[in-house]
Amino acid sequence: MQGEPRSKPTVPPIRNFILSKLPKSQLASLAHDLVPVDLAVGTRLGEPSEYMKYVYFPESGMISTEAVDRQGISVQIYLTGREGMAGVSAALKQPEMHHALMVQAAGRAYRLPAAVMQRELRKDGPLMDNLFTYLHLCMVTTAQSALCNRVHDVEQRLSRWLLTASDRLESPRLEMTQETLAGMLGSRRSTVTLAAGELQRRGMISYSRGKLTIIDRLRLEATACECYGIVNRTFHSMVQPPMQGRS
């Protein structure tokens, strides 16, 4: 007996959490508009006061959302990996960007026109629930960053973001230039270099030529400020089964 016709488009298994939790019917209605794209490190997907035409659902890699001042100095406010979606304001029908979006770790994503996302969101259903949960995570992280940048020192903040990046990428190995690290923390390169050197000296990470590996995760967690734990609890309550930074 012949099986199903072969002409049916085959969709590779979706790794993105928001998309993968959608019912098949809703995913099918989006399939035509979801375009796979490569995320190359350093690509800027949006700038403040620009209009976002697309939202991005990472399958792998990581997109950083940053607040930028008029001199062009930026401070990271949250990181999006395969658990989320970049471009939340466009999804919420507020297409004018307030923040900058930049690819911080190479990977792949599904790109969806913002207008399609908005149309789908007018249906009360799983997509709306998933987005709301993710939006809550973004808000918690952003709020925590506002506090963290005021009260925690550079070593704590560096540890916080290295752990977070490793969670989002599900790998203890991170490729990050000192420039990227400085941009994450909103601190001088020289300050970040010193802090990274200290974490390395104490055996928590190894770092050379832009390749950073978390060696002793538990001690890094103990060095990080509480912001890591607070955001992480929210993260794990939304992502089931848990994604892990450990290899």
Partner: peptide
Amino acid sequence: TELVYQHITLQMLQMGQSALCNRL
């Protein structure tokens, strides 16, 4: 819903700017 979306986006702007402001 749209008014709430707008409010949330403005809140995110405010918080993100505070993250930068508190640092710099």
